[in-house]
């Protein structure tokens, strides 16, 4: 294995609040190769902040620091805004929860995908259109020639998320960050979307970070999982070992899910140990 695609060391983010700064991320570290990494946590754990910090999409008031935040050869901490524009959408793509809000409602699907391709490749119109059609076919849209001319409101949720994936992956990014990509979708289309995402990422040899609150989903889909709580990584483990997790937070998170196979009288409500919030020193 060569150099990691993404190297994050001691990443800290703080937002201004009524009383000075409040920490959203308190020193998280991980590396990512061409693999699928899951970041799991509940609301407020800092999982989305981590994704946005990598894209440098945090509000300007946020205070960001890290010992290292590198995308292969680029230092994301010091990169200029012009470099970042190139990276966002070009080398790093981000897929958000709800395609209805992430797509421009006034432009056709095709125009938006073509635009994102041409921004990053300098391709001509005809080539961009061909690539767009091919890409829509790659995300298993049956009739790309019809879908190209649709507006976002004419798409179903699952279709919208396929379009998002097509749009985000058309410039062949090295890293894809998917922030709750299936939470807004019905359970029967979730599987298809993840399948498509997996297929595309593997075909293009990209790295993937899947940010989710859904422990079973992440453990099923990813190779490795980071479990986050209170802005820190509680535990990092191989996805298939999730059922043998050792950290009490991961264990209780797992146990609080209602089981499908058998009945239980009472669900286990996680009890939080205040010591988890004290900073882990390395």
């Amino acid at each position: 294995m060569t150099d990691p695609l993404l190297d994050v060391r001691n990443l800290r983010v703080a937002y201004p609040s009524a009383h000075g700064y409040s920490d959203a991320l308190r020193g998280i570290s991980f590396t990512l190769g061409r693999e699928k990494l899951g970041i799991v946590g509940e609301s407020g754990s800092g999982k989305s902040t981590a994704g946005r910090a990598i894209m440098r999409l945090l509000p300007p008031k946020a205070r960001v620091s890290a010992d290292a935040l590198r995308l292969s050869d680029v230092d994301l901490l010091t990169a200029s805004e012009a470099q970042m524009r190139d990276i966002r959408g070009g080398r790093v793509a981000m897929i958000l929860q709800d395609p209805r809000y992430a797509l421009n409602p006034l432009k056709t699907v095709g125009a938006q995908i073509m635009e994102s391709y041409r921004i990053h490749t300098r391709a001509g119109r005809a080539e961009a259109r061909d690539r767009t059609l091919a890409m829509l076919e790659d995300v298993h849209i049956r009739d790309p020639r019809r879908v190209v001319d649709l507006y976002p409101h004419e798409l179903s949720g699952g279709m919208g998320q396929r379009v998002m994936i097509a749009m985000m992956l058309i410039a062949s990014p090295e890293l894809v960050i998917a922030d709750e990509p299936t939470s807004a979708l019905d359970v029967t289309v979730r599987g298809q979307i993840l399948e498509i995402l997996n297929e595309r990422v593997e075909a293009q040899g990209a790295g993937l970070i899947l940010i989710s609150h859904d422990l079973p989903l992440v453990s099923d889909f990813c190779d490795r999982v980071l479990v986050m709580y209170g802005g820190q990584v509680m535990e990092e483990l191989a996805a298939r070992d999730l059922s043998q997790a050792t950290h009490p937070y991961t264990v209780s998170l797992h146990a609080s899910l209602p089981p499908l196979d058998h009945a239980v009288d009472e669900l286990i409500v996680p009890e939080y140990d205040p010591s988890w919030l004290t900073e882990i020193r390395k």
């Binding site: 509940e42 609301s43 609150h213 209780s252 609080s256 209602p258 009472e266 409500v269 996680p270």
Partner: peptide, 14 residues
């Protein structure tokens, strides 16, 4: 709600 919070609310309802 988060699953850990959901567990508490479902317990109360039951």
């Amino acid at each position: 709600l988060d699953v850990s919070v959901q567990a508490g609310v479902l317990n109360v309802l039951n």
